[in-house]
Amino acid sequence: MKRTFKEKWMSQWQLQVMVWPSIILLIVFSFIPMFGLITAFQDYSPLTGFFASEFVGLDNFKAFLGDSDFYNVLTNTLAISLLKLLIGFPLEIVLAILINELRAGPFKRVTQTISYLPHFLSWVILGGMIISWLSSSGLVNSLLMSLHLIQEPLPFLTNPNAYWWVATLTDIWKEVGWGTILYLAAMAGIDPSLYEAAKVDGARKLKRIWHITLPGISQIIVLMFVLRVGSVLGSNLEQALVLQSSSNIQRSEVIDLYVYHLGLTQGDFSFATAVGIFSSVVSVILLLLANVLTKRIHNSSIF
């Protein structure tokens, strides 16, 4: 017998009550504001408003697509994001496995806590620390020099070519511990009897990791990968803002910073929104591509 919509709804009202607040929040804070995207096609000013601002067609898009600097900015964003993806993403999984293999006890807890710590420092604080550490008389250079590995201090921050690596490695250092949480949770859900069975069959540690742990968290890995790929154009504004100096602008100017410098600080919301739409569209395409790709290769995907 087919139930009416009302009966169906009533039978699951507890669930409905839980889900609706989030849907309403989503509508209010994510969907209604999308109306503001209209400003990308206007010469918008908060004082004239959405309805009275003059429409300028695609001028705002032309302004950045015709800007030779924009492609440099795009390259920087992609390069830093891809480095983070290539190095940081596997590293999180490796670290999660290592922590998981530790015997439960004080050492494991301390290790985990220490690895989370940098995540809770804001980039404003951390950036200042990193600038001091990497300066010519800072911690890193002093250490390398007293170990006689180098003669002259290395210009980590003034050498523009080093910036991508500085940005990537400091970000990974800050976030890698935090990134392990989801994987550890997934590993906790793997049935221990699988490990016991493997042990009985004579599988060594590496074999067990390869054949039980990794397959056990593969769904999460796919999920995280697809999400990461979708955000390669979303660069780290705070990090770039703090670590940028006049000597590395060429390599440190990323999309968010470009929008901030040329749009928001000038009060030019239209320009900022236009770049925002552009990178959102590209992000959606990348997300879909990553999803299709993982479906082909791994036979699982997030939607």
């Binding site: 209010v28 504001p33 999308m34 995207l37 504004l237 999309i255 929104t273 770049v275 959102s280």
Partner: peptide, 14 residues
């Protein structure tokens, strides 16, 4: 990016 959109969005609501 998201932030810039968010700023404008809040203007929209206002």
């Amino acid at each position: 990016m998201r932030k810039s959109i968010a700023v404008i969005s809040s203007l929209a609501i206002a």
